[in-house]
Design a binder for these strands. Structure first.
Length: 511
RNA sequence: GGGGGUGUAGCUCAGGUGGUAGAGCACCGCCCUUUUAAGGCGAUGGUCGCAGGUUCGAAUCCUGCCACCCUCACCA
C-alpha cells in the first residue's frame, strides 16, 4: 500500500455553504495538505491500543504507579493550547480522559503535527499517566498519531458544572445529525445501547420459551392486520401496486395454521398517518403467537417480561418512572374495560342500545360524531376518561367486538372479545387477544370493514382471501400479542418522544 | 384546521418612541509549559425571513406572504 501524497484535498469539491462553515472547512483542507506534506497519512489503516479510556479511569492509580505506558485512541473533544504545551480531552466510546502534550516531551515532529490538529480529529496517543495540580487524571503524550482528520467541525461544546453550551441548535439538529449527536451526547449513546439491549433481551426471552423467529413480507399485495392508511409502492416487473405492511398479524397466523406452534417477528410496520411524539410513520413492532393458548397466557407472559425488563439496569432508566411512582413489580391489576368505565365515568356500557349510550357519552365528551358505532363510542370514552389515569401497570380486558375484528368473541358475551391491552404510565404498551379462528365469523367481520371502507373510511383494510383460506384449512386456538417496541423503549428509558428512541426518525425535509 | 409565539453573524441573543448594526461564544492570527466555559491582544464575518408600502431616511411603523416552535383538535 503506497502512501498517497497528492495534496488534491485543498481543491476537493466543496459542498454548498449551507451552514456557513465553508471557510472553516477550507481551512481544515489546507491543514490536511500540510499534514500530507509532512509525510503523514491522515487516514492510516489501523491502530492498536492497549486500553480503553474506561480501563484507564477504572485502574488509574494502579497504572500510574506502575509507570506503565498506555496506548489509547479516540476523538479530540477539547483543545487548550498554551504556547509550548497544551491540554485536550480524548473521548472513546463513552469516556473522556485529559491528555497533556508538551513540546519538549513529544519532540519537534510530533509537535508540528499536533499544531495541525483540530477538535474532532481522531488520534492515537501513548504515554504515562499523572495527575495535574487540580487532581485531574491525565495522560502525558509521548507519541501522537493522527488516525482520522476531521473536516467538518463539531459544534462547540463547553461545559462547566452542570451547564452545557452548544454551538448549535441542539433540539432540532440532534435528530437531523445523529452522528454529531452521538459524539456529543452521552444520553443519546445510552439510549441506543438500552434499546439494543431491550430488543436482544426480548429475543432471548422468547427463544428460551420455544418461540421461532420468522420474517414475513414487508411488501404486500394486500395489507391488513390493523386499521391504518398504508404506504403504496410499485413493482415494475409485475406491473402492480404493492403496499408496505401495516401489521405482521395475518402472515404470522398463516404460519400458526401451517403447524408452527410458537412464532414471533420483530420488524418495522409502516402507517401513512400523522406524526407526533407517540407516532412515527415507521415503527418497530413485536408480534408473537402461541398455539393452544388464550389471552390469559399473554397476561402472565407479559407480566413476567415487563418486570424483568424493568429490573435490568442496562435497559431501564429506573429513576425515570419511579419519579412517577410507577411500580413495575407483578402482579398487575386485571380488570374489564366495562368496569373501568363504570368506575371512572359512571356510565354502564354493558348491553346498551347504541343511540341511548351515545346520548350519555355526549355529556362526557366534547365531540361525538353521529356515524360512530357503539365500539367507536366506547373506545373514545375509554381513551378520554380512563386511559390517562392508568398509571400503574394494568391489563384492561374484554373490548367491544366492533373495534377488534381479528379477536375471538368472549364466551360469556358475544358483543365482547377476549382482548386485553396493557397500560402503563397512561399509555398503551401492548395489545393481545385470543385469535379469531372461525373463518365464517372472520369473513363476516371483514365484510363489515369493507362496508366502512366503501363509506369512505380509508383506514379499513380490504378482505384478505388467503388469510381466510388459512383459517378454513384450520388454525388451532391461538393467543397473539403485539408490543410497540418504540413506546416500550420510551417507557423504560423515560424518553419523551418516539424520535428520542429512534436513531434516524422521519423528519420534515429541511427548507 | 383553531389559538399563541419567534425569525438580526456559524451558534445564543441585544438593539424604548424611525437616523443606516452590536455583544458573548465559535473560526483565523499573535503571546502563553499543570489548563479545564483556560487567559490576554487583534482580525474576519450581516440582503436584519421575503415582497411591497409610509418616510428625506426603516432591523424598527403599516400590509401581505413564507418558515419554524408551542398548544388544542385529528391520527382503532
Amino acid at each position: 500500500m503506497k502512501a498517497r501524497t497528492a495534496p488534491e484535498a485543498a481543491t476537493a469539491e466543496t459542498p454548498s455553504d449551507v451552514d456557513g462553515l465553508d471557510h472553516v472547512r477550507r481551512d481544515r483542507l489546507k491543514k490536511l495538505s500540510r499534514i500530507r506534506e509532512l509525510g503523514i497519512d491522515p487516514y492510516p489503516y489501523s491502530y492498536h491500543k492497549t486500553h480503553t479510556v474506561g480501563d484507564v479511569l477504572e485502574r488509574f492509580d494502579q497504572l500510574k504507579d506502575a509507570q506503565k505506558k498506555v496506548r489509547l485512541a479516540g476523538r479530540l473533544m477539547s483543545l487548550r493550547l498554551m504556547g509550548k504545551a497544551a491540554f485536550a480531552h480524548l473521548q472513546d466510546e463513552d469516556k473522556r480522559l485529559q491528555i497533556y502534550v508538551r513540546r519538549d516531551v513529544i519532540g519537534e515532529p510530533g509537535w508540528s503535527l499536533f499544531l495541525l490538529l483540530d477538535i474532532g480529529d481522531i488520534v492515537g496517543v501513548a504515554g504515562l499517566l499523572f495527575k495535574t495540580r487540580t487532581e485531574e487524571r491525565t495522560l502525558e503524550v509521548a507519541e501522537l498519531q493522527l488516525l482520522t482528520k476531521n473536516l467538518r467541525p463539531l459544534p462547540a461544546v463547553k461545559e462547566k458544572d452542570d451547564k452545557t453550551w452548544y454551538g448549535w441548535d441542539a433540539q432540532e439538529e440532534r435528530y437531523r445529525n445523529r452522528t454529531i449527536d452521538l459524539i456529543l451526547n452521552s444520553n443519546s449513546r445510552k439510549m441506543l445501547l438500552r434499546r439494543s439491549r431491550l430488543v436482544s433481551f426480548i429475543r432471548n426471552f422468547l427463544d428460551e420459551r420455544g418461540y421461532v423467529e420468522v420474517e414475513t413480507p414487508i411488501l404486500q399485495p394486500i395489507y391488513g392486520g390493523a386499521n391504518a392508511r398504508p404506504f403504496t409502492t410499485y413493482h415494475h416487473t409485475y406491473d402492480r401496486e404493492l403496499y408496505l405492511r401495516i401489521a405482521d398479524e395475518l402472515y404470522l397466523k398463516r404460519l400458526i395454521a401451517g403447524g408452527i406452534p410458537r412464532v414471533y417477528e420483530i420488524g418495522k410496520d409502516f402507517r401513512n398517518e400523522g406524526i407526533d411524539r407517540f407516532h412515527s410513520p415507521e415503527f418497530t413492532m413485536l408480534e408473537c403467537y402461541h398455539a393452544y393458548e388464550n389471552y390469559d397466557y399473554y397476561m402472565d407472559l407479559l407480566e413476567e417480561l415487563l418486570s424483568l425488563l424493568a429490573k435490568d439496569p442496562s435497559i431501564s432508566a429506573t429513576k425515570r418512572w419511579e419519579e412517577r411512582q410507577i411500580d413495575m413489580s407483578p402482579p398487575y391489576e386485571r380488570i374489564t374495560m366495562a368496569q373501568l368505565i363504570r368506575e371512572h365515568s359512571r356510565i354502564d356500557i354493558t348491553n346498551r342500545d347504541r343511540n341511548e349510550l351515545a346520548l350519555e357519552i355526549k355529556k362526557k365528551l366534547k365531540r361525538v360524531e353521529p356515524h360512530w358505532g357503539i365500539g367507536k363510542l366506547i373506545d373514545e370514552l375509554f381513551t378520554k376518561e380512563v386511559e390517562p389515569k392508568l398509571i400503574q401497570p394494568t391489563f384492561v380486558k374484554d373490548y367491544p367486538v366492533e373495534t377488534s375484528p381479528l379477536a375471538k368473541r368472549h364466551p360469556d358475551n358475544p358483543a365482547l372479545v377476549e382482548r386485553f391491552e396493557l397500560f402503563v404510565g397512561g399509555g398503551e404498551i401492548a395489545n393481545a387477544f385470543s385469535e379469531l379462528n372461525d373463518p365464517i365469523d372472520q369473513l363476516r367481520r371483514f365484510e363489515d370493514l369493507l362496508k366502512l371502507r366503501e363509506q369512505g373510511d380509508e383506514e379499513a383494510p380490504p378482505i384478505d382471501r388467503d388469510f381466510i383460506e388459512a383459517l378454513e384449512i384450520g388454525m388451532p386456538p391461538t393467543a397473539g400479542l403485539g408490543i410497540g417496541i418504540d413506546r416500550l423503549a420510551m417507557l423504560l428509558t423515560g424518553g419523551s418522544s418516539i424520535r428520542e428512541v429512534t436513531m434516524f426518525p422521519v423528519l420534515k425535509p429541511k427548507e
